[in-house]
Design a protein around this nucleic acid. Structure first.
Lengths: 147, 147
DNA sequence: TATTTTATTGAGATTAAGTCTCATTAAAAT
DNA sequence: ATTTTAATGAGACTTAATCTCAATAAAATA
């Protein structure tokens, strides 16, 4: 298959989300979304800025931050706090969602997914009459190598 | 009971933790710990600073931040990110631990505790050979009043 | 108890993540 | 093609958090 179907589908997702919310499908939003989408890393705003610059794109930091806010708000990316001073973000694949286990000694990040926890989260939100949208869930400890 | 036993016990906990780690049991650390301990609020560094000031204590912001780092490191308080730009902290009562459900519209915070999730967290850390210390767990959604 | 050692503190300078402003640009509606 | 209005860029601005270093005070030692 020559066609990048996955990319087409996710770009369509962005377009539809923005249209649904009455927002514009701009070149910059496409580039930022594509950059986050095409990598599994946990990236901060500055890294995204330099990644786009490296690809020859002129884009403002303000636009990075503004676009990130939109993507988080509509659940296209997840925000993640690993305890250094910056917010990190990653593509939210709803069908392969994961949380994070972080070593407080070396900073290593292990991703995990647990359906039981996801179910319990929905249940708890429902009990309190909340319309559940997303969660932030980090476990901290000392990894095998650092023990 | 005239004696504030609860306070004596928690002050002892601070003293023993600091001694165990070779750190000093200072007046400032006692005051900050006492301030956090005596309230259930989710407070940021600035609020703690002003609370102590109001009680006539001269203390530096730098000391607040440094002490908070120590208390978080040794699990005496929990760090919490509700999505505004500041870190918030609260007394970590190990026997009455709770997580947070946050309304993204009005900012309301509902506390909850779920033993099943706690057990799953320990299990996941163990599976990855991590020595589990603590977690950060926030659920986001829209509350009943905002729907 | 007095002295010594060394971690901690205070005050303010510094850093840097993130936000804001406003003139300009470009989506998308007409 | 024209109009409308949201989005962008560049850099100033804000502010949470960190850093510096001389002064202070815990706690160890004599």
């Amino acid at each position: 298959m020559r066609l990048n179907l996955n990319k087409i589908i996710t770009m369509q997702l962005l377009k539809e989300t923005l249209q649904r919310e009455g927002l514009r499908y701009t070149k910059q939003r496409q580039e930022i979304w594509n950059e986050l989408r095409s990598s599994n890393e946990h990236r901060d705003a500055e890294e995204i800025f330099f990644a786009l610059r490296k690809r020859g794109l002129e884009i403002s930091r303000a636009t990075i931050y503004r676009t990130i806010d939109v993507l988080v708000k509509y659940n296209l990316i997840d925000k993640l706090d690993i305890g250094d001073g910056r917010a990190r973000f990653e593509y939210n694949d709803k069908y392969l969602h994961h949380d994070h286990l972080i070593c407080t000694s070396c900073g290593k990040i292990v991703e995990f997914h647990n359906d039981e926890i996801e179910e319990l989260q929905k249940k708890i939100a429902k009990q309190h009459n909340f319309k559940f949208s997303h969660h932030s869930h980090q476990l901290f400890g000392i990894c095998e190598d650092c023990k």
